[in-house]
Design a binder for these strands. Sequence first.
DNA 1: CCAAAAATGTTATATTATAACATAACAATT
DNA 2: AATTGTTATGTTATAATATAACATTTTTGG
Lengths: 158, 158
Amino acid sequence: MPTSRRRHDHKHCIATAIAHAETVCRQKGIRFTRIRRRVLELIWASHRPALAYNLLAQLRREKHNAAPPTVYRALDFLLEHRLAHKIESLNAYIGCARPSADGRRHIGQFLICDGCHQVAELDDAELQRMIESKASRAGLKAARHTVEITGRCTSCRR
Amino acid sequence: MPTSRRRHDHKHCIATAIAHAETVCRQKGIRFTRIRRRVLELIWASHRPALAYNLLAQLRREKHNAAPPTVYRALDFLLEHRLAHKIESLNAYIGCARPSADGRRHIGQFLICDGCHQVAELDDAELQRMIESKASRAGLKAARHTVEITGRCTSCRR
DNA sequence: CCAAAAATGTTATATTATAACATAACAATT
DNA sequence: AATTGTTATGTTATAATATAACATTTTTGG
């Protein structure tokens, strides 16, 4: 759980994520609009997964006419381009911490702490290979996977 | 994907699952009531995950006053005692195919076919060990995990 | 039987997500 | 600058998933 290291410079996390998103969007020729950018910033406000309606409430402070589709469309965009991920077991959204600048297929695995609710992302090729291999042996050609590991992080165990 | 084998005797699946549930409940001294049994039977009607409100609609045919809590309570019971599992990426429920008669902690992994929507369950110790080890190395003591692998089963690839 | 505990009934509502259609902004071309 | 197609956003309504809260019934164990 890298994010539990004390006093990490979180503004730097946000800035990096946004800069990366800009690069990706420029490269792909897709539009990083104000709404999409703002939603991504709000998601990155912490290392805890954000709920869609919380994002909406925050967005509304600045943008009175924001509605559910406003947020869900932005989320769909961010998920599609892997700038964010959905944590299925929480129905919540988190910024992608393992951007792959290249077009490589990226499938994360998530570590969720029960105590502080922080989430860290792995992108472990060995684990992915084992998953694909196990699936294949059972007759399924894996296209993607959801891996969410829940427990207690080091700080929360102290 | 074992369930895609031709003409498997599905009534046998159901009967086995119900018989197992009876055994488990007797052993644990918990109550396998009519509602709980019926919901488990409905879940086992196929190897596809069942949606809670579909279960409710079916239940209502026989039990006019069934309401959302009727189904969700039964589901909670079945999940708690690991007679069923929730597929998080689908918000749907499936019967547990890997009953452990002993009290052993059982955490499944799921194989989901995009084509026929059937789900098979693994209970792979090696995979679980790798997951726990990767989590541990990243500073998380894993307590449980959600592993849902999506792709195409053998029959659907033909 | 009686009291406590567990399960179910009942009503209402919270939370998450999408449908459907209208309008606006943008981009490329003339 | 006007035209046109495309993408993004606005807007209203509603679907789908899940739980809260409290009343009543059923079961269990003394």
